[in-house]
Design a binder for these strands. Sequence first.
RNA 1: CGGGGUGUAGCGUAGCCCGGUAUCGCGCUUGGUUUGGGACCAAGAGGUCGUAGGUUCGAAUCCUGCCACCCCGACCA
Length: 490
Amino acid sequence: MSKSLPSRADNYSEWYNELVKRADLAENSAVRGCMIIKPYGYSIWEKMQRALDDMFKETGHTNAYFPLFIPKSFLSKEASHVEGFAKECAVVTHYRLKNDPNGGGVIVDPDAKLEEELIVRPTSETVIWSSYKNWIQSYRDLPLLINQWANVVRWEMRTRLFLRTAEFLWQEGHTAHATKKEAIEETEQMLEVYADFAENFMAMPVVKGIKTANERFAGADETYCIEALMQDGKALQAGTSHFLGQNFAKAFDVKFLSKENQLDYVWGTSWGVSTRLMGALIMAHSDDQGLVLPPKLAPIQVVIVPIYKGEEQLNAIIEKVNPLVKSLRKSGVSVKFDTSDNQSPGFKFAEYELKGVPIRLAIGNRDMENGTIELARRDTREKTSMAFDGIEQVVLDTLEDIQTKIYAKALAFRTEKTHVVNTWDEFNAKLEEGGFISAHWDGSSETEEKIKELTKATIRCIPLDAKEEAGTCILTGNPSNKRVLFARAY
RNA sequence: CGGGGUGUAGCGUAGCCCGGUAUCGCGCUUGGUUUGGGACCAAGAGGUCGUAGGUUCGAAUCCUGCCACCCCGACCA
């Protein structure tokens, strides 16, 4: 294994792949397209889960669990939904294996064919709505606010660790409401939750917007999304929140009796974020030295590396550092004091930088004599020698500062890479530079398709904060009343 | 699924054109010396050369099929 990572400038995707593996986040599995999330990677995901789950609970949702398998018939109930997912579903056809009578290990027992094939869920709207039918009779049963943490399978052609895998972990919220207004409010509320999480925990700025009809979720009336910009100038859809209208209620016959004794279909939403956020997190901040993790999601926030000659010095350092470790932990900081002696300090420095540990403290004999300790921050790679006394407060402040600074840096990058263009030539020129392009579009699917065909750029979203502004479509010259955001995307 | 490429120890590789049972580095084990930015010395362990078949006295090497992975397209969170 060579020591340094491929650089982002040389080969961005190779840099990404190598980083995921070297930082011990994940690796490919024996099954094509599936990934093994390793302990270090999983602990980041767990931190994301915890934060999101708390936010879901605060907004009134509860968790439940629905099965992995979906009867094939369920999937055909909502027409556009099937169309969207049919091409990428894994199907269970048999329930038993047997020994090959010809000797070659086990084979599928042809006598064990299922009467109705089962689909491995690509998403759970159908199973969940078939249950909601039994759970909802009256307006008093509404709203129904449920979330589940689960794995889903979408048989993708080309996969990349975290960004697109055949099986991935996610959460999917599925809610049912008495009124359209309330369902839309829920959809918008969850989009806000996602944006809040992305910005305040992941330190990743996002654009909130709605998808065009082409990019909409299969079965939704409206898809809201958060879009982030990666360091290579490509956009990444980081989360979606769908207003389902009455589509699934009609498909699964979910009706309720209102206060006015009127029978009506319920209104639905669904919303999800996945382990793809891990990919977003990696690409948003990391550099050629390795991961850069926001303190709020870093499994190890502070690592302490002792530098010593002989056991006596090590013991003195341990004695000095232990109280610091204890008090930092008491303040809720996750600390690793790495006293292992099978690696040199230099190796440890490089290793913890690769893993994105926000703060490194190094203490050696020199510091012991001077009453100092060295603090290195991962985001800027600055090292400062400072007084040992009072270091705890400095660490706490620095963690907050890193969280703020990496957000500011990512935001500055996005601002710099967001181009407002008015002509087709400008559009193409800026597209090559990468980034978001804010331009007028005539609102037709044909034009959107045409632009995609010509440039590989898609409309990421119509930003929620887009101003009313008269203009002409970048391609057709037809009138437009607001700008949309284009980019090449993951 | 189309076009291109690659499969040799845990990882990265040499050898392949020109057939004779595998090279080097990292990592690993043991012992010693080290430790302020990826330490050094010594001794070890580890390989049915992706897989199935063919040619041959003999195949990592030549031929054919298959599989996997990577890059570029079509599809997607």
